[in-house]
């Protein structure tokens, strides 16, 4: 298993390098950040000075070379807009995003799996049909619109929950998070629900599909003939067998939530990485965009690895080794 993981990590190194090349050159084609940065009143000499100060006067390959050289030393460049290390700015905003994504995923699992199980076990019932219809709605409504509706209903009209921002944070066990305070939980509810809605629908449908297939398998009949309680059959034998696709998807979806919950973070003014990314794209803050995407690639590589490891724990038939080996 160790050899497998090592080899995977090495492959990932090449992926990251290729990615950096594509992103770096891609971002430089988009436009010139200088007019977004300088004060509009700046005269020609000042604009030139700013171009020089940001290193934008050098040829592209040279800029890339410097970037890679810095990256090898752990320095992913300095933000044009904030003047601080791009990596530092991103990591500063990471906890907010991770706690939001985590809350959304937990909501998706807690709601999606029971709903999916029910719909799969009693596919003909009215409740199941309602669940499936509801999941289609969950899929098709745009996040942007749902977010605004949530704010309108729960914050503006009912006044139950705050509409914007992250709540107070507290530190327990070395982790600083807004999940530890009541104020923080109030603030996270709406954005997390907004993010979770689509994932709940996804998990519900995946679970249902898996359940429908599994109930007709021999091991299910055998378990039932053996006289096991329905609770044990569903809770252990069924669940264990249908979880593999769910785990795969959840892993990737978690990555997606961390990396690209741009819309939700923007609407709810959530101080996370998504809001940073969209702001950086708008102002063409190249170092932040490049550092961000490289971090995201790294994250997906790690998530995929973890998913593979969880597979082997869920299903003993899966062994972690190279196909050729």
């Amino acid at each position: 298993m160790t050899a497998y993981i090592l080899r995977r990590l090495m492959q990932s190194g090449f992926v990251v390098l290729a990615m950096s090349l594509i992103v770096f050159f891609g971002v430089h084609v988009v436009g010139d950040p200088i007019y977004m940065l300088v004060n509009p009143q700046a005269d020609q000499a000042e604009i030139e000075a700013a171009i020089k100060a940001l290193g934008l006067d050098q040829p592209l390959w040279q800029q890339y070379g410097q970037f890679i050289w810095g990256a090898l030393k752990g320095d992913l460049g300095r933000s044009f807009v904030f003047g601080e290390s791009a990596l530092k700015i991103i990591l500063q905003r990471m906890p907010a995003t991770v706690e939001l994504a985590l809350t959304a995923i937990i909501m998706a699992v807690v709601l999606g799996i029971p709903l999916g199980l029910y719909a799969g076990l009693k596919p003909k019932s009215f409740a199941s049909k309602s669940i499936m219809a509801g999941s289609i709605v969950g899929f098709s409504l745009p996040t942007f619109w749902v977010g605004l509706m949530l704010i309108m209903v729960f914050a503006v009209i009912l006044g139950w929950l705050p509409s914007t921002g992250r709540g107070a944070t507290a530190t327990y066990f070395g982790i600083t998070s807004s999940l530890f305070t009541l104020d923080g939980l109030k603030h996270i509810t709406l954005p997390a629900l907004n993010l979770a809605l689509l994932k709940v629908s996804l998990v519900t449908r995946l679970t249902r599909a898996g359940t429908l297939e599994a109930v007709h398998q021999d091991y299910m009949r055998f378990a039932s003939d053996k006289g096991l309680s329905p609770r044990r059959i569903v809770g252990v034998h069924l669940l264990k067998n249908i979880l593999i696709p769910v785990v795969t998807v959840l892993g990737l979806e978690f990555g997606n939530l961390v990396a690209f919950s741009v819309v939700t973070e923007t609407i709810f003014a959530w101080p996370g990485m998504g809001k940073l990314l969209i702001g950086s794209i708008q102002s063409l803050d190249r170092p932040v965009i490049v550092a961000y995407l490289i971090l995201i690639v790294l994250m997906f590589v790690v998530i995929n690895l973890i998913v593979d490891v969880i597979y082997s724990l869920l299903d003993p038939r899966v062994r972690l080794k190279d196909k050729t080996a």
Binding site: G159, P162, S163, A269
Partner: peptide, 10 residues
């Protein structure tokens, strides 16, 4: 969202 935050009193 800014307007909603004002209406909601945030």
């Amino acid at each position: 969202a800014r307007v909603a935050a004002l209406l909601a009193g945030d």
